[in-house]
Every structure is written in structure tokens, then in C-alpha cells.
């Protein structure tokens, strides 16, 4: 068996912000209502975080849990940790109605870094980055495709579907072309 390959094999670009494909990253889409009693235990067991509030993302080292919708969470972890996390969720949730699926391979993940990383994203997404706080997960549109993003380190993490990874990478790299800073 081969090593898992991310969509672009770790593509990189340097402009006034840096763009880097990371991954493959482990991701689980967990659907359950917020009032399910076992939910905190399941999330804790899978990624070690608490249950994020509305539009929040809880980050613990390499693992995170983001609020995607009133009944959907995105669990992030090392690629190899998914199978164990799925087992842990199943065990914690027991008979409670939920759905947990591996979506690691369905996604591409980018790090947009640098002091002006927000200016690259402001060219693609109808999001007010001045009011997007640390720890907020925003699902939105990057030009013509769906994306989710949050602040992390000196920049942002951007998640999109795998099939449009090249498109999103090209968008980000073009947006970061030196000389096109917004301020």
C-alpha cells in the first residue's frame, strides 16, 4: 500500500503572503445535535477538546473541533488517528443518533501565512476579516467554491474540497502576488 497523497503533494507559493498545502490531515465529520448527552465525551475522546460553541473552533495542538452547523462538527487530527477516533466516537455515542464519517481524503487544506494573509483572503471571500476573531470558524465562499477558514498561528487555515484544490491554490497564490497588497 502507498503513502496517502494530499491533493497537490504539498504545493507552495511565496508572495506577500505564503501559501502552502498541508496534509493529508485527518478529518471527521460528526453530525449530532448539541443536546446529545454523550457528545462532549465523544469529542473529548476523539480530539481532546470541549464542544465548540456557535461558529467556534477549539484547538488542542494537532487536534481541533470546529462548529460547522447546529448539528455538525469538524474534527481535525493527524491522518493516522482517524480510525481510532471513529472507534472512540462510536463507543462514546453508544446508541445515540449520530453520524461520524471519515472525510480526510475529501478535503484539501492550506496555510496562508504572513502579516497580510487576511488581504489575500479578502480578495476571495465576502468576510469582514477585521471582525473575524481568533477561534472563529467561518464557512464561506472562496471566489466560486465553498471554503472554511480560521485564524491559526501567523495566518489562516483554509479548507476546501479536494477536487478544487488546484483552483483554490491558484486563487490564493494569485491573490498574494507581490504588488497587489490591499494596504
Amino acid at each position: 500500500m502507498s503513502e496517502p497523497m494530499s491533493a497537490l503533494g504539498g504545493a507552495k507559493s511565496e508572495g506577500f503572503a505564503s501559501v502552502r498545502e498541508i496534509g493529508p490531515l485527518g478529518m471527521i465529520s460528526l453530525r449530532a445535535k448539541a443536546d446529545v448527552k454523550a457528545l462532549p465525551k465523544a469529542i473529548k475522546a476523539a480530539v481532546g477538546t470541549g464542544v465548540p460553541g456557535l461558529r467556534r473552533i477549539e484547538i488542542e495542538g494537532e487536534r481541533a473541533c470546529g462548529w460547522m452547523s447546529p448539528d455538525e462538527y469538524l474534527l481535525v487530527m493527524p491522518y493516522g488517528a482517524v480510525a481510532g477516533a471513529l472507534e472512540a466516537i462510536a463507543k462514546a455515542m453508544g446508541g445515540a443518533h449520530h453520524l461520524a464519517v471519515d472525510v480526510s481524503d475529501a478535503r484539501a487544506v492550506f496555510r496562508v501565512g504572513g502579516a497580510k494573509a487576511d488581504q489575500v483572503l479578502a480578495k476571495l471571500a465576502p468576510v469582514d476579516f477585521a471582525t473575524l476573531g481568533t477561534g472563529e470558524l467561518r464557512r464561506t465562499r472562496a471566489a466560486q467554491v465553498a471554503a472554511a477558514l480560521w485564524k491559526e498561528g501567523d495566518g489562516f487555515t483554509v479548507v476546501c474540497f479536494r477536487s478544487v484544490a488546484r483552483y483554490v491554490f491558484d486563487l490564493l497564490a494569485t491573490g498574494a502576488t507581490p504588488g497587489s497588497e490591499l494596504s
Binding site: 491533493a7 471566489a143 479536494r162 477536487s163 478544487v164 484544490a165 483554490v168 486563487l171
Partner: peptide, 15 residues
């Protein structure tokens, strides 16, 4: 805007 050439439209690619 940016929508020209390679990024005129998203092209979905399989693995």
C-alpha cells in the same frame, strides 16, 4: 477580476 486563464472557473479534478 481574477477569473481568467486557469482560474476562470473551478475545474474539478479526480485523484
Amino acid at each position: 477580476g481574477e477569473a481568467r486563464g486557469e482560474i476562470f472557473q473551478p475545474l474539478r479534478r479526480t485523484p
